[in-house]
Write a protein that binds this DNA or RNA. Structure first.
Lengths: 216, 216
DNA sequence: AATAATCGGAGAAATTTTCTCCGCTTTCCA
DNA sequence: TGGAAAGCGGAGAAAATTTCTCCGATTATT
């Protein structure tokens, strides 16, 4: 039996599908993307979309809240599961970069379209900063993180990294981002550069890879 | 006397003004921003905008070409004026980050809205990669740049950095970006971490600064 | 000062977006 | 398994937005 107010299984599934799709659509087209486009890409009818989210603001709000929860979960999990704070930090940064959110809940909670001021969002942001602060402090203590890099800096680079490279073929964009993540982490690292060297990505290779992707 | 085909002084001024404005508007709202919005923010009438650029594509094309030229000029100037290739590279990356272009001419020339495939744009991209390649090679030779960081990597991080943090107050966004630039450069640097330490940006400070900005 | 080029912006036309309505489908409890 | 309640999809009317022209006023140039 289903508690009252509990959504039916398919409805719940659709709700999540819509949020996930909306996150990506907003990431690629900005928060002005049309509702119908979100519905189409989510593979649901317009009616379904509007039943779940009566207006654009409520959808954006849901996306923000969901993304924030993901980031918090990411940070908590990383803190609990990694022995070294540095590894937790790397994992968090890399994980955020993979979220492709782009609505910038990330940084200090810019009031994205007057939706981000909600108590729920604000409280989530505070929680995120708290967890992250613990990781950053621990990383400082362990001597792995440069002392001149603070929690705000971490959120700053995350803010840049979460934005994808939307005009690129996904695979290439993902690889470029991963490489950028490594560079950023290397730059944050105290004294020894930790990441094992690999092949550089040359201009030639970049062009070649790009053309190859384009042909498919 | 004006050569035929030469624009009148005010027309030339307006043309540049429109391109500059369009670059920023597109950076903030994506290439779907309305033409009238561009005209309004540029402080010209819709008629003027349409006289210079008959349709959206031609405006986007002009913005791309202009941005590309700026990047090329930036790279050339940096290469000529700096003694050390590493300094030239830093200057280029920092300069690009300041352009706030966001149309991703940056990376390998994604075909942004079918406009980037133009011969003019392609040729510009090649020129940019050439100059940059010289700088990167020189930086490798001088031992300042990690050997596993190639020209493609540089374009990759530039691609991330040129995108602003549009939902933040400009001043805060700019500072966050500058700090991120330093981290990226530090991460690219071979052996010794060169940037002088400064104060970390803490979570507290970030929140405080954000609130302060918001009140004005 | 005369002339030719350019400007601005009101507003009609075209396009796009929103959002409702209702017949059909799916879930889930008994 | 059967039936009632919940949910689904998408056509299309209504609303909102965007484009782009036209012409009297303005400004650069000689």
């Amino acid at each position: 039996m289903r508690a009252p107010g509990q959504l039916r299984a398919d409805a719940q599934r659709n709700r999540e599908l819509i949020i996930d799709t909306a996150r990506e659509v907003f990431a690629e087209q900005g928060p002005g993307a049309t509702m119908d486009e979100v519905a189409r890409l989510a593979g649901v009818g317009a009616g379904t979309l509007y039943r779940h989210f009566p207006d654009r603001d409520s959808l954006i709000h849901a996306v923000l809240a969901d993304a924030l929860e993901r980031m918090i979960a990411l940070a908590q999990k990383a803190r609990e599961e990694e022995t070294w704070a540095w590894d937790a930090l790397s994992r968090f940064v890399r994980g955020c970069a993979g979220l492709r959110l782009d609505l910038l809940i990330s940084v200090a909670g810019a009031q994205v379209h007057r939706v981000a001021g909600t108590p729920e969002i604000n409280e989530g942001r505070v929680r995120l900063l708290e967890v992250l602060d613990q990781i950053v402090s621990a990383a400082h203590d362990e001597g792995a993180l440069r002392t001149d890099v603070g929690t705000g800096d971490v959120m700053g680079v995350v803010g840049l990294l979460v934005r994808g490279l939307p005009t690129l073929p996904a695979a290439l964009g993902d690889e470029l981002r991963e490489r950028a993540v490594r560079l950023v982490l290397a730059g944050m690292r105290a004294h020894p550069a930790p990441s094992p060297p690999e092949q550089p990505l040359t201009a030639e290779e970049l062009t070649r890879r790009f053309s190859a992707e384009r042909e498919s």
